[in-house]
């Protein structure tokens, strides 16, 4: 259940990351931008597994409004009609959607008075929270305006954002693009872009699995106690088996089987109950979440077969290990003493 809950939330976060961040980002190394003459966009588009390649333009700007101004990372993308910015950035400048925002570039253009900064005014079309935390505030603007702001030639790009058909394993595609593009190109995956978060998710899973392992171990010790009590209370029967001709190894195996069967029954029961409950809770969205606070309206449960298999295997192996001690003790018991004690 706990792993299904974690997998549900982590799956949701990963899906959002995959949906809202580029799967791969290709940037030039040692030069300012890609040009159409490079033919890189077309080469990447033709690679199998690539869904879409879109250029972007990135640079630093000052965002000004009235007498206030603040620096920000600006990124120009296709399909935008105005500026979209993070809430902290909008808040710092007391901006609301629809107002005209002035962007001052770090690049300059030559005027009769000498080099002057490139200035651009655009309406603020939206304030959208970022998917992941960023070190610096960011704003998006139409790519054509971004090219003007950054003094780039027409059709030039600071890089390409790539969406893949199957983004679960971006590293392989990143390698293919590196081979295809040759030197002077760096490729980062969505996992690289969100490295702290991805690492935190992995760490969270390790911690939870360790916790569950400890729970299984404690439950296993309980099983050991039950098997020990069983061995003590049924020692008379074990002695009778020995008198009837059962070798100690057979007597031990009987009690080992009893302990292991108890463990397996508990494991199977827990697995079936947990699987069913997780499925029902997720299917019928029985635990709602306030959408004001969370990006999802219910607590998600996702049962990963590998997680289930790991817990089941751990539980089964531990059941065998803890049942070994009491079963060995029964196998080594003094039959005569037990017979005397049991009349």
């Amino acid at each position: 259940m706990a792993l299904a809950l974690l997998a549900g939330f982590q799956g949701h976060i990963r899906e959002r990351l995959i949906a809202e961040t580029p799967h791969l980002t290709v940037r030039p190394e040692g030069r300012g931008e890609f040009l159409p003459a490079d033919g890189l966009e077309e080469k990447i588009s033709q690679l199998p597994g690539v869904l879409r390649v879109t250029p972007f333009v990135r640079g630093r700007v000052w965002v000004t409004q009235s007498s206030r101004s603040t620096p920000a990372d600006a990124i120009g993308r296709e399909g935008l009609s105005g500026i979209v910015m993070d809430p902290p950035l909008a808040g710092a400048l007391a901006l609301l959607p629809g107002v005209e925002v002035t962007l001052v570039s770090s690049r300059t253009r030559l005027s009769p008075l000498g080099p002057v900064p490139i200035v651009l005014s655009l309406p603020l079309s939206g304030i959208v929270p970022p998917v992941t935390s960023r070190r610096k505030p960011e704003l998006e603007l139409p790519i054509a305006e971004a090219r003007r702001l950054m003094a780039l030639p027409l059709d030039a790009a600071s890089g390409y954002e790539i969406r893949m058909k199957d983004p679960r394993d971006p590293s392989r595609m990143a390698e293919e693009i590196r081979l295809c593009a040759g030197r002077g190109v760096s490729v980062s995956t969505w996992e690289d872009s969100n490295r702290p978060l991805v690492a935190a998710l992995k760490l969270e899973k390790i911690v939870l699995f360790t916790t569950i392992s400890l729970i299984v171990i404690v439950a296993g010790l309980n099983l050991a106690a039950i098997t020990a009590v069983l061995a003590a209370t049924r020692a008379g029967d074990a002695a009778v088996l020995a008198v009837l001709g059962a070798p100690p190894s057979t007597v031990g195996r009987v009690f080992l089987a009893a302990g292991v069967l108890l463990g397996l029954a508990g494991t199977a029961g827990g697995a079936v109950f947990g699987t069913t409950l997780a499925h029902v809770l997720d299917r019928f969205r029985l635990i709602p979440l306030p959408t004001r606070l969370y990006s999802i309206d219910h607590v998600p449960f996702r049962l990963e077969p590998a997680d289930l298999a790991a817990v089941v295997v751990l539980s089964c192996v531990w059941s065998v290990l803890v049942a070994l001690g009491p079963s060995r003790a029964v196998a080594r018991m003094n039959t005569v003493e037990v017979l005397r004690a049991n009349g």
Partner: peptide
């Protein structure tokens, strides 16, 4: 145990 099983039967009180 094997020898006992082959040769001896036991009735308890």
């Amino acid at each position: 145990a094997r020898m006992r099983g082959e040769t001896i039967g036991f009735v308890f009180q």
